[in-house]
Design a binder for these strands. Structure first.
Lengths: 236, 236
DNA sequence: TGTACATCAGTGAACGCGCGTTCACTGATGTAC
DNA sequence: TGTACATCAGTGAACGCGCGTTCACTGATGTAC
């Protein structure tokens, strides 16, 4: 992270002819630029300048601007998956608690990584242009889907078990809606009677109640043994 | 609508020195371009060319690209408001039916006017840069809010009446989430087990059930006289 | 351990391009009388 | 109804700029022997 913009020339002189990690530096620079000016207003040349390198250098690492952008989106999905999956923690200590944590992690990610988020969802690069990009996005969604699956399995007796895929899509839509309308610093924000986190949490809780889940904060598997408890330690 | 792109030169010759309605033509051209290439990749010069006019001409009508873009967003919000408010139809024939219609209208608007939608929500122009733009967006949101207000008033006895503003925000977030993730033609679409409309309708129904509203399709005011019936005719 | 050589990863100059913007201008339209 | 004049809404040429991209090049690094 020491190839940031400050004192490009000096650093360039220090580092000598070879950069050492230009690919990484370009990704970082592009990320910074997207953060500053949005996914639209970032240029290949700008990224090179920020990395302290000639405008021709990036071509050694990326075919063009789009390839750089889609690399960023891909990395974004990977980090997104990591964040969500850590939050989910395989449903520990109980499905409901873990699930709420996933919601918060979603918003945190959007808030803390606006550049990634917009490369992923707002940059206009088609997901299916690149199969590894598509795969990365599928893996991220799979976390939400897995959580929905476990949640669906908790449907109380007598309540029809909701289709997990539908639940996952609903929850994703709520999260994305709240994130892009209310949780971003840039532009279209709006006075809210509560924080974006609270808004999303309330929304998801109401939604789950609508599916027939009990309305109190802890899910049934918190005390019963419906859901086999995690094998050892960690729960503390 | 006869100043479209085809045969610019001929038309320019026909129309003579003065265009007659250049401001309008530029808005239309920009809208077309945004539809084709996204809000990012549209240029002032392009719009002029498409309107069959010299690159200096637009400056008679818009200070710069941003002003043109925000005019489009503003008009978008106005049409959005019209669409939502027609769908809402002041809650006729009953609150619930009208409410569902609003949801469909939301998605229809996003689907049928992707250019407007992205100028409004994804172009990065700050809403508060322009007070008439802000006002237009407020008026559009006010429809959703008014509908939520009426819906909240229907809460069955014994059920705590939900805060209407929160409901409105939740519903907006769901609609926007579904619209931008699943209802747009461009880019990040995904195989769905159902249409975007069905997905949103199910989501909203589950949400409302979670608030304690009855789960069958017609709201209580459909048959009772809680909600004073519309004064005359029209309902047919 | 040293040397020759291939390969890699950058340079920097150059190009064509389209954009945004300005400018003096001019044709068309509206208005006073 | 006609004429003089002001104003409006466009022209087209010109500019500086930064971008994307190519090219022959060169310094640094790795490797065979």
């Amino acid at each position: 992270m020491n190839w940031r913009k400050d004192k490009d020339k000096d650093q360039a002189r220090e580092r000598g002819y070879h950069h050492g990690n230009l690919r990484e530096a370009l990704l970082q620079a592009a990320l910074d630029l997207i953060g500053q000016k949005g996914a639209a207003g970032f240029t290949f040349a700008d990224a090179a300048r920020m990395a302290g390198v000639s405008p021709a250098a990036p071509y050694r690492h990326f075919r063009d601007r789009d390839e750089l952008l889609s690399s960023i989106a891909q990395r974004g999905f990977e980090q997104f998956e990591t964040a969500l999956s850590e939050a989910w923690d395989d449903g520990r200590p109980d499905t409901m608690t873990a699930f709420e944590r996933v919601g918060r992690a979603y918003l945190d990610f959007a808030r803390e990584n606006p550049a990634f988020y917009s490369a992923m969802f707002e940059s206009g690069i088609p997901l299916d242009s690149n199969s590894t990009l598509l795969a990365a996005s599928e893996r991220a969604f799979a976390i939400i889907r897995a959580a929905a699956e476990r949640l669906a399995a908790l449907a109380p007796p007598g309540v029809p078990r909701p289709p997990a895929l539908m639940m996952a899509l609903h929850i994703w839509a709520m999260s994305h809606g709240v994130a892009s309308l209310f949780a971003r610093a840039d532009g279209a924000r709006r006075r809210l009677p509560m924080t974006a986190d609270e808004l999303l949490e309330a929304e998801v809780l109401i939604y789950l109640r609508g599916l027939g889940f009990p309305t109190d904060r802890r899910a049934p598997d918190a005390k019963s043994a419906d859901d086999k408890p995690s094998p050892a330690g960690k729960t503390k």
